[in-house]
Simulated assay, not measured.
Amino acid sequence: MQDVKAPIAITMGDPAGIGPEIIAKTLTAPTFTTQCVVIGDPLVMQGAIQQVSVNWSIHEIKSPEEANFSANTINLIASSHFTQLPKVGEINADNGKAAFDAIVTAIELAKTDKVSALVTAPIHKESLSLAGIKYPGHTEILAHYGDSDKVAMMLANQELRTVLVSIHCSIREVLDRINFDGQIQAIELAQQGAKALGFQQPRIAVAGLNPHAGEGGLFGREEIDIIQPAIKASQAKGYLVSGPWPGDTVFMQARQGKFDIVVAQYHDQGLIPVKYMGIEAGVNITLGLTFIRTSPDHGTAFDIAGKGIADHASLETAISYATQLINCKNQGANHVL
């Protein structure tokens, strides 16, 4: 159980995906004891409760202080009000707007310390776009509404941790985002993120952009002209950072214990190694915010939505990480996850 007074907020995610189902499965599990409030739609969450066949009810509240953590009750702050259940697996604007509104509502609660952390269920980027929402994903929404201009995505499991220099953009655009300031920011946030997890002097590895980390300039000069200078500047601050290391071996070395965290240059370079080890064990942590945010390391899974077969292990892991981050923060980050 979390060592905090304020509950953890869980956003519903896209109502047509598996988010409501995995939330219902998690909160109604007999062994689950963490105090949480759901931000989302009452009708959708009631439908999820019925789907998992438990005799629980929705307790609709206006603020976390009104939560009643008695048995067989899910506390919910309504951020939308559907009049009929959305069709599962469907991409549409109403679903995107509902998912977005839940996130924004939860951010305001986190910014005012009414909740101790924010855990987000998966959203669908196409539904967001259809709703006229310009942000490509959670990270960008959190950065804007969380009033943070320097954020990064960290993916973590028990063996690997990685922070991304560039996130949701095309491979062509990655090259424009690989600059000195971006490297410095990612290294700094990797330092902060690893320390938040309890690493007192984190060993940071920076992956190269090009094959073989550029092979001394034969395969590109980004490592020589951009990445190496940023590493040296970070070393001057006292960070235990090294590289650039070839992207095809650096995660293997991290898993073997040589590094505590890896700075990856682009989305798939960093996420594939973590996800390959099991989506149920991976958690997305947003660095650079004034509050704690974690999420499962999977998407809306429209192909299985509504079938009652979604695995809620990754959401449980995300809540567990949020709880441990809260406790590490309260205890001076003396414990490693």
Rank of each mutant, 00 (worst) to 15 (best):
M1H: 11
I10G: 00
G13F: 05
G17M: 09
I23A: 06
A24F: 07
K25S: 14
F32C: 02
C36W: 13
C36F: 11
I39G: 04
P42W: 03
V44Y: 02
G47N: 10
H59K: 14
I61L: 04
I61H: 01
K62V: 08
P64F: 05
A67T: 10
A67Q: 13
N68V: 12
S70T: 15
I77H: 03
I77R: 02
G89F: 06
N95W: 00
G96S: 11
V104H: 02
T105R: 06
L109S: 01
A110Q: 04
K111L: 15
D113S: 15
P122V: 08
I123R: 06
I133H: 04
I133G: 10
G137K: 03
H138R: 05
E140L: 10
L142E: 03
D147R: 07
D147V: 09
S148D: 03
T162C: 13
V165W: 04
D176I: 00
R177E: 14
I178L: 14
N179I: 14
Q183E: 08
I184N: 06
A186N: 13
E188L: 12
G193K: 07
A194R: 04
A194H: 02
A194Q: 00
K195N: 03
L197M: 15
A205P: 05
E215K: 05
G220K: 12
Q228I: 15
A233N: 01
S234Y: 08
A236R: 08
A236Y: 07
K237Q: 14
G247M: 02
D248N: 15
T249G: 09
Q253I: 00
G257C: 08
F259W: 15
V262N: 13
V263E: 11
L271D: 02
A281S: 11
N284V: 04
L289E: 01
T290W: 01
R293D: 06
S295C: 00
H298R: 01
H298A: 07
T300G: 13
A305P: 03
K307Q: 15
H312F: 15
S314D: 00
S314T: 09
A318D: 10
I319F: 06
T323A: 14
Q324L: 09
L325H: 01
I326M: 04
N327W: 02
H335Q: 12
